[in-house]
Every structure is written in C-alpha cells, then in structure tokens.
C-alpha cells in the first residue's frame, strides 16, 4: 500500500521513450477515432433522421427503409458490445479479406465504434433544430441532403459540440482496449514496462497521471473551441470530469 515516488520517477525516466511512444499512439487513435467516427456518424445520423414520406417514390422509399434498418442495426450492435470484443472479432474475421495489420485494424475499429455513438449524437442534434429551418430549406427547393449539409448539420454539430468533444475524451481512455490487438498505445506500453520491472503500482500510477493529463488537455482545448464558437462567451458546462 506504499507508493515510492523516487521509484516512480526512476521508472518514468528509464522508460520515457516507451511512454512517449504510447502517448503518441494513444493520441493518434483518439483523434482518428473521433474524427473518423464523426464523419461516419454524420452519414449514419443523417440517415437516421430520414423520414419516410407519403409522396416518396417506390425506390426511394425502399432505400430509406433499408437505410433506417441498417443504421438501427449498426448502432444496436456497436453500442451493445464491448469494443474489446469487436476489436478481436473484426480483426481476425476480416483479416483474410483486408490482409490488415493490427494497427490499421485498430484505427478502423475505434472509428466504427465511435460512429455508433456519434450517429446518436448527430441524430439528436438534428432533431433539436427547429423544423422551420428544414421547411424553409425545402420551400426554396433544396434536396434533403442539401438541407442537411448547408443548414441543418452545421447547426446540429454546433449544438452537439460538447457531446462530440466528449467522445474524444472517451476515446483517449477507451483506446486502451486496443491493447488486445497489441497496438502499442499507452496502456500496452505501460503493461510491458510493468511486466519487466514488476512495479505495477508505480508504473500504472504513471499511466493514470498521463491519461489524466491528456484528458485535461483535451478538455481545455475543447472548451476553448466551444468558447470561440459561441462568440467568446464563457462556457458554463465543464467537461473536466467527464
């Protein structure tokens, strides 16, 4: 139950390059996962916001129904199973098709996992926009996707920015699950270091501190962006502890 801080510093100094490598990979996965997830999530969320209308032609009705069913299934599966399970399953299942290494697989898996959450964030963001905005789009002849692209999504993304940013913080932490694919992110590096020096408490405390610093930094950056988007006004909601 005793933590020896001199040992802690010693471990850090001796393994600094391993930690830094881990930090880089963790940041890369968190950022790619969030951005990739957002892009995919915009697509899925846009489809989720589709409404089947009475005047739809047979073919567009068909694609809408299929699209809605697909996105519902996608969100159900990827939100309902652990990313660790998804990672191992998809990596081995799709390996014969894509011939991918675990690094690429990890980037793709964290993106498609995040997309399931982003899709719901985007959908609720879209639904929070006054229907009049959409009606005005339609009244000047914009198509459904043009309306989304130019009017609805810019507002929806702005409104859901706190939730979108939250996914970045989640991904900084959850990328640790990709250690099961031997992706050399911070958790994987930490466990290899701990495995060689047997100082589990100190080594993992270093990891915890680094994770906390990374999430705090991300949170500060997100707050700054949000403040800028709101025209310099102070943001009340803090994501410090999310």
């Amino acid at each position: 139950m005793k933590i020896d801080f001199s040992i802690l510093i010693n471990i850090f100094n001796r393994n600094i390059s391993l930690f830094i490598h881990g930090i880089k990979i963790t940041c890369l996965f968190a950022i790619v996962g969030t951005v990739g997830g957002l892009i995919l999530g915009l697509l899925l969320g846009g489809i989720r916001a589709l409404k089947v209308e009475k005047n739809d032609r047979g073919i567009s009705k068909f694609f809408k129904v299929i699209g809605l069913a697909f996105t519902r299934f996608y969100i159900w599966v990827f939100r309902g199973t652990p990313m660790m399970v998804q990672a191992i399953f998809l990596y081995y299942f799709l390996k014969p098709v894509f011939h991918w290494n675990s690094f690429t697989a990890g980037l793709i898996i964290i993106s498609i996992n995040t997309a399931a959450y982003m899709a719901e964030i985007v959908r609720s963001g879209i639904q929070s926009i006054d229907n009049g905005q959409f009606e005005a789009c339609r009244s000047i002849g914009l198509t459904f996707f043009q309306s989304l692209r130019y009017v609805i999504l810019p507002q929806a993304i702005k409104n859901s920015f706190p939730s979108i940013g939250n996914q970045l913080i989640v991904n900084i932490k959850d990328s640790s699950m990709l250690n099961v694919l031997s992706v050399t992110e911070l958790f994987f590096q930490t466990s290899s270091i701990a495995g060689s020096n047997y100082r589990y408490i100190e080594t993992y405390l270093i990891a915890a501190i680094i994770y906390l610093l990374l999430t705090s930094l991300a949170s500060a950056i997100l707050n700054a962006i949000e403040r800028k988007m709101n025209g310099g006004k102070k943001v009340k909601t803090s994501m410090e502890f999310s």
Binding site: D130, E135, A136
Partner: peptide, 13 residues
C-alpha cells in the same frame, strides 16, 4: 415561393 410566419431564416449564415 413561401414566406413563413416565423421567418425561418437560416440561423447559421
């Protein structure tokens, strides 16, 4: 053309 009671100008532009 359509003019609405609540204007419905696009808020993001």
């Amino acid at each position: 053309g359509m003019v609405f009671q609540n204007f419905n100008l696009f808020n993001n532009m």
